[in-house]
């Protein structure tokens, strides 16, 4: 299973070091896919809850949503180049320190179980790097990537647990994710209008007063 974690770490690093939003989204897709594979290795697919979670991770988050997001962003005609974190040595060093700190935490929590230590180290890296991207970005696109990286880290932590939630709750989680993505689309659209018109939103002409 260790190679899956290595793959996850590589995906995290790719999204940090390649100045492209497409690559960042495909790296995210890889993170969700690997989380799905780890779940597949650890659980037998006998309950509806696990089946729905598999579908959510392997199909929805790893294939459908990245394709839709990239398609929508292409229509907005964004520049291909995009840094998820500012491209300088200090920031990269900081990201590296966060990752090393995460693995140190993993080792501290599981001193006698290298696999679990690696698992927790990788997932905490994902969570912290997601927050790191989020705090470094003032553009919505980068913030969306940060939020999704953060969420992928949390889901990787979740697949570690030996608990089987109700299928209704799993459906709820999937629906929440889809709803969130729809809102991301809406905000990406709205902010692209604001950006292209140098900060003037057409809606602002209508009102800046409290009607309701």
């Amino acid at each position: 299973m260790t190679y899956l974690f290595v793959g996850y770490v590589l995906a995290l690093l790719v999204s940090l070091f390649f100045a492209s939003w497409r690559v960042a989204f495909w790296a995210l897709a890889a993170e969700f896919f690997i989380a799905g594979l780890i779940l597949l290795r650890g659980e037998t697919i006998e309950s509806w809850s696990i089946r729905i979670q598999m579908f959510d991770l392997l199909i929805l988050r790893a294939i459908v949503v990245p394709l839709l997001l990239i398609g929508a962003l292409k229509k907005l005609k964004l520049a291909r180049e995009f840094d998820t974190v500012p491209a300088n040595l200090v920031i990269w060093l900081f990201a590296l320190v966060l990752m090393i700190g995460s693995y140190w935490l993993g080792k501290k929590l599981f001193p006698n179980d290298l696999r679990e230590a690696f698992h927790i180290g990788t997932s905490v890296s994902g969570v912290l790097l997601g927050l790191f991207i989020l705090s470094n970005q003032n553009r919505i696109l980068g913030q969306v990537i940060g939020l999704l990286t953060f969420e992928a880290g949390i889901l990787l932590t979740e697949v570690m647990g030996h608990h089987n939630e109700l299928w209704e709750l799993q459906v709820g989680l999937t629906l929440i994710f889809l709803w969130t993505i729809l809102l991301f689309f809406e905000f990406l659209n709205k902010f692209s209008k604001v950006d292209t018109e140098q900060g003037i939103d057409p809606a602002a002409i209508l009102v800046e007063r409290d009607v309701l």
Binding site: Q143, K190, A203, V207, E208
Partner: peptide
Amino acid sequence: IYHQKGAASVRAAW
């Protein structure tokens, strides 16, 4: 949050 409001409210909602 940004119903019938301008850019500032959209940013606040985000």
